[in-house]
Design a protein around this nucleic acid. Structure first.
Ligand SMILES: [Mn+2]
Ligand SMILES: [Mn+2]
Ligand SMILES: [Zn+2]
Ligand SMILES: [Zn+2]
Lengths: 143, 143
DNA sequence: TATCCTCTTGAGACGGCTTATCAATTTCAA
DNA sequence: TTGAAATTGATAAGCCGTCTCAAGAGGATA
C-alpha cells in the first residue's frame, strides 16, 4: 500500500482481500467521510439523508466499522457515542477535548509515543494500539 | 485529609460534607471494593450476592459513583463496560492491557504526565483529567 | 430513647447507542 | 447473462447504566 494510494483504492484493496463488494452506499459514505476529521454515525446519517433519504443507519454503522478494518478510520468512544476518526490523511493522533464546549484539538507528540513504548517494553508488552485523551477546559471556557 | 486517613474515614468525611448518610450497604460495598484493584458493577454485584442476596444492582452503581465523587474510585470505560479503579492506595495511574488474555498492568510515568501538561498548555487548555491506555500483547501471549 | 424529616434502597421501567435479524436486492466472477 | 454470495434497510433486540417511586433506614434534635 503506497503512500500515494487514494483511500478509494485502499478500500477496494481491502474489499478484494476479504471477498467483499463495492456498493453505491460504500462509495457514498467514503466520499462523505473523507471530508471529515471525525464524525459520529448519527451525524453522518443526517448529513447523507439529503443525498439518499433511504440510506439506513445500520448501513452507516456497518460501513464505518468496515473503514476501521480497512485502516481508513479509527473508532474512539467519547461520552456515550462512538466517534469515527479519519486517519487516512493525518495518520495516528491523539485528542485534547474541552469538557466545556466539546471542542476537539488533535495533536501528536513523538516524545509521548516513545515513552509509551518504553513503558510497554519494561513490562514485556508489545503495543498494538493506544488511546490518549486529555480532558480539560479551553481558554475560552475558562472565562 | 491526611495521608493516614483510612478510606472509611474519607467516605465518612465526604458524606458529612454533602448531607449524605452512612448505610449498611455503603460500608459493605466499600469493604469489598478496597480488596480490588478494579472491578465492574456487575462483578461486584455477583460477588456480594453471597453476603447480601437483596443488594440491588442500582445500589452498586450508585455507590461506586459515590466513591468516585469521594475520590476513592475512578471510573474508566473499557470495552462496553465501566471499570471502577481503586485509587485510594495507588493514586492516579494508567493501564497497559493485553488484548490476548485481558491482563491489566498498572503504571505511572511522570514524564508522560509532564508532556501531557505541556501539550495542553501549548493549546491553551488546562487539563482536568486524562485517559491513557496502551493495548498490546504480553510476553506470554506473543508465544 | 423517641421523633420525624431527609436520604437511601430495591425492583423494574426506561433510554441511548449499537448490533443482530431477515427478506429483498445488488454485486461480480464465471 | 447467470446465479451464488454479499449487502441493504427496516426494525427488533441487546447492553449498560440511570431514573422512578414507594417503602425503609439514618441520624440530628430534644
Ligand atoms: Mn481526530
Ligand atoms: Mn487500575
Ligand atoms: Zn471549551
Ligand atoms: Zn496476555
Amino acid at each position: 500500500m503506497t503512500k500515494t494510494m487514494k483511500e478509494m483504492d485502499v478500500l477496494r484493496d481491502h474489499l478484494a482481500k476479504h471477498q467483499l463488494k463495492l456498493t453505491r452506499q460504500r462509495e457514498l459514505i467514503l466520499t462523505a467521510f473523507l471530508r471529515q476529521e471525525h464524525i459520529t454515525a448519527e451525524a453522518m446519517y443526517h448529513q447523507l439523508a439529503k443525498k439518499d433519504p433511504h440510506l439506513g443507519l445500520a448501513t452507516i454503522y456497518r460501513t464505518l466499522n468496515l473503514f476501521c478494518d480497512a485502516g481508513i478510520a479509527q473508532a474512539r468512544h467519547f461520552g456515550t457515542q462512538t466517534q469515527y476518526d479519519n486517519i487516512s490523511h493525518k495518520g495516528h493522533h491523539d485528542h485534547l477535548i474541552c469538557t466545556g464546549c466539546g471542542t476537539i484539538v488533535e495533536f501528536e507528540n513523538c516524545e509521548i509515543e516513545r515513552l509509551q513504548e518504553e513503558v510497554a517494553t519494561k513490562n514485556g508488552f508489545v503495543i498494538q494500539t493506544h488511546r490518549l485523551e486529555l480532558y480539560g477546559l479551553c481558554s475560552r471556557c475558562r472565562h
